[in-house]
């Protein structure tokens, strides 16, 4: 049984005629101690998908229209409030983009981590355990740091504290939603290195959300690429980066400049990322796609296993 299995998830914002489908038939599988990267541009539905795993999307406005989210075989969409509390911060922990916004400014960081311990592992709610967690996430001089307030720490250090808090419950799945996007590159490299170490040391599964394909190569075992509420390609990370198959993945990789190779001119993707409510009919990428044909406008292509373990939502992937 996989640790997490999302099957054909459909989520709307609003109801009736005003309903907008933000997540449209997303399926994902994550085995224990595996790292899956969910990649896509802003608005593609990554955060909403990830937050759904612990039912953290406010509803209303959100409505689950269809599908299942199985965490260790149990459907989160059918759980009672007490069952959900057990999942949240228990089996599944989150780390978000803005550590400053997630930490409470009026409490010392040691206190906040201890609160998290009290909730999930009451017997371990001690200073010793807090210090051990801070050490685990690479905070120097943790004995004195437990008394710091969040504003006395840099963004990178705050993110380490957030990770320590997420680890307090010894989760089986860590969901990190753009954990390095707000950080400088050298600090981003530190946090990615930390996640890589933690993954090896603790053997937990990670669902990492990012818009940066470069980070995929650093951490992921597998990748799922999202566009306009749908998964368009999912592969082993290495295969995807070496030979992307969906025209969107290919175009995205070609449109970013490289640090080593030289091109005179970037291959830009025309047009804009479609907004929710304005998704084009047929294949959602077809108006921007370099190989689109007229039939691409007719029906949404299926996500098909075109090679073992390689799923692509494009019948023209070989062209």
């Amino acid at each position: 049984m996989p640790l997490l299995e999302i099957k054909n998830l459909q989520l709307d914002f609003g109801r009736g005629a005003k309903a907008l489908r933000a997540v449209d038939g997303v399926s994902l599988r994550l085995e224990a101690s595996e790292t899956l990267c969910l990649v896509g541009e802003s608005g593609s539905g990554k955060s909403v998908t990830a937050l759904s795993v612990a039912r953290l999307v406010p509803s209303p406005p959100a409505h689950y229209v269809g599908g299942e989210i199985l965490v260790e075989g149990r459907d989160v969409l059918k759980m009672s409030k007490p069952e959900l509390r057990e999942i949240r911060g228990g089996v599944v922990s989150y780390v978000f983009q803005e550590p400053g916004a997630s930490l409470n400014p009026v409490f010392r960081v040691g206190h906040q981590i201890k609160e998290s311990l009290k909730l999930h592992r009451p017997t371990a709610a001690t200073d010793t355990e807090v210090i051990r967690l801070l050490k685990l996430v690479g905070i120097p001089a943790p004995e004195s740091r437990i008394k710091s307030y969040p504003h006395e720490m840099s963004g990178g250090m705050q993110q380490r504290v957030m990770i320590a808090m997420a680890l307090a419950s010894q989760p089986k799945l860590l969901i990190a939603d753009e954990p390095t996007t707000a950080l400088d590159v050298t600090i981003q490299a530190q946090i990615i290195e930390l996640l890589r170490e933690l993954k090896q040391r603790l053997g937990m599964a990670i669902l990492l959300i990012t818009h940066n394909l470069g980070i995929v190569g650093d951490l992921a075992d597998r990748v799922a690429v999202m566009y306009a509420g749908q998964i368009v390609e999912t592969d082993a990370a290495r295969e995807l980066l070496q030979r992307p198959l969906h025209p969107y993945t290919r175009a995205l990789m070609h449109s970013v400049p490289s640090l080593t190779a030289h091109v005179e001119r970037l291959t830009a993707i025309p047009g804009n990322v479609p907004r929710l409510g304005a998704f084009p009919g047929g294949c959602r990428f077809h108006p921007r796609c370099p190989i689109a044909r007229s039939e691409c406008a007719n029906a949404i292509p299926e996500l098909v296993e075109v090679e073992p373990q390689r799923w692509v939502r494009c019948p023209l992937w070989q062209t």
Binding site: A189, L241, L259
Partner: peptide, 17 residues
Amino acid sequence: SAVPVVDPDSKRQRIIL
């Protein structure tokens, strides 16, 4: 060395400051 690169075969030596 901190810039994430897409190439999975890049043999870069990472310097973590």
